[in-house]
Design a protein around this nucleic acid. Structure first.
Lengths: 260, 260
DNA sequence: CGAGTTCGTCCCGTATTGCGGGACAAGCTC
DNA sequence: GAGCTTGTCCCGCAATACGGGACGAACTCG
């Protein structure tokens, strides 16, 4: 219809859109999927068959309908989850958990988002829940801002083509210019913070973990409830995280990102 | 080439195959992907562009090459990972960890595989590592066999069209008939075990978690090193797991699977 | 117990669209 | 600076993905 066709493959695109439906639908029927994707039933059936053939979807045990497949889960575990990295960072996490008493976690940068790769949950009754594998928008979290601060301004600009950034809470940074300023502050300070920018009432601090294998893009982050996250408390928290990172031999190399 | 084309969509299939490459390659280049998939460079480029447009791949921060995208990680977290389920099962896991002193985990069935959705790691110096999100072949694990035992024989047959089953270790059950016998034994005993069938030197026991929301297909599993996993030890372990499951209000309903 | 509905599956004809080949610019290495 | 590799884009052709429709089976409701 358009003068020049979009540069995407339509059938692959519908397949990706269908997989995304698994986020909100535990089970999908051929008819239901066809309706949601605005394609013919026969097309949805072919797409689902292709997904099943590769393990990206499975037939529901009941015999009717389809569900997300194990291959989707397997591929959703990038290299940051690998056993070697987790084993190496285990003492760092244990040390940080003991030192801070708060929920601590390691996060990796994936485009404009971060993924929680591992962590320890606080034993405080009032604590932040640990959700390994969850993703968040990088610019709304302390760990994300820290990892972004290790990129060049040009690289950050490439990640955010728009000047406006999506708001997660009322306190989220919503302009690219403000984000770049914040990243400068993070570089000067050596650690990043978040003051309710990804979740209301949740404050956080993050420090870099240099020398980590997975593309050298891991951060150590700790999230605390509002009342334990004042400005001074966050500074102390960041100090403890820095000590844990250093104790684990993960001394922070200067601001150079050496490509392996 | 064949008389009648396979019932799969070729371009979607190559996209899925490309995503699978991210399992072994942290970064992919257009040329490299084209070579691995045996397609033209231009085709690989179009596939990658489509994946990037939907967030299933990202351009590497270095500007050269591509990497797995955040959407892949997001979609790889099925409903079993949802916060509500994890919150509800938290006391069960804590109780089981305390009772057994071993690494305990909750697992969900996904076709012929299981996924570890949550867990607690043992504090014993010699312990089994907890890997949330990892998948295993169901017939090689205690949790998998337990979940399979809650299906009908017909459903199990549908999951395993072949009589031979892939071997993970020398002790893995490799015939469907033997698996069905084992599942009968599991049903009679009330719990399942694995004697080095998924990893040499690792024994395990698993019990059902009824009433769990995610398609009522969750199990509580504990893995121990060989020397703590004798027949009697495993029976005691299973008893403790059953007590933890019951304490959490997850009494085991009889062998009926009520579809929601 | 039977009629109506909804489901998954399969086939077929058409023209849309995904494919390979090739060309071009930019960046890196030596 | 020459030679390599990289990502990107265009173009023409025919393979192929699409929609429509038909069929059988299963579930539901009266």
């Amino acid at each position: 219809m358009s003068v020049h066709r979009d540069y995407t493959i339509e059938s692959l695109d519908t397949g990706l859109r269908l997989m995304r439906l698994f986020l909100t639908h535990d089970r999908l029927t051929v008819t239901g999927a066809a309706h949601e994707l605005r394609v013919a039933r026969s097309t949805a059936h072919r797409v689902l068959s292709t997904l099943v053939a590769r393990g990206f979807a499975i037939r529901d045990v009941s015999g009717r309908g389809y569900a997300a497949g194990p291959e989707l889960v397997r591929i959703g575990r990038p290299a940051g989850f690998d056993a070697a990295t987790r084993t190496r960072l285990r003492p760092v996490l244990d040390d940080a958990a003991r030192r801070t008493g708060e929920t601590v976690q390691t996060v990796a940068l994936l485009g404009d988002q971060i993924v929680i790769t591992d962590g320890r949950e606080s034993w405080n009754p009032v604590r932040v829940m640990l959700e390994v594998g969850r993703t968040h928008l990088a610019h709304s979290t302390s760990g994300g801002k820290l990892l972004l601060s290790r990129l060049t301004t040009e690289q950050v600009r490439a990640l955010y083509p728009d000047e406006r950034l999506p708001a997660v809470t009322a306190d989220t940074i919503t302009s690219r210019a403000a984000l770049l300023d914040e990243l400068d502050a993070v570089r000067a300070r050596g650690y990043a913070t978040s003051l309710g920018e990804s979740h209301p009432g949740m404050h956080a601090a993050a420090v870099p973990l240099a020398g980590s294998s997975w593309r050298d893009r891991l951060a150590l982050m700790s999230c605390v409830p509002l009342d334990r996250g004042g400005r001074d408390a966050l500074a102390r928290l960041a100090g403890n995280l820095l000590r844990s990172a250093a104790a684990g031999g993960h001394t922070v190399t200067a601001h150079g990102n050496g490509e392996a």
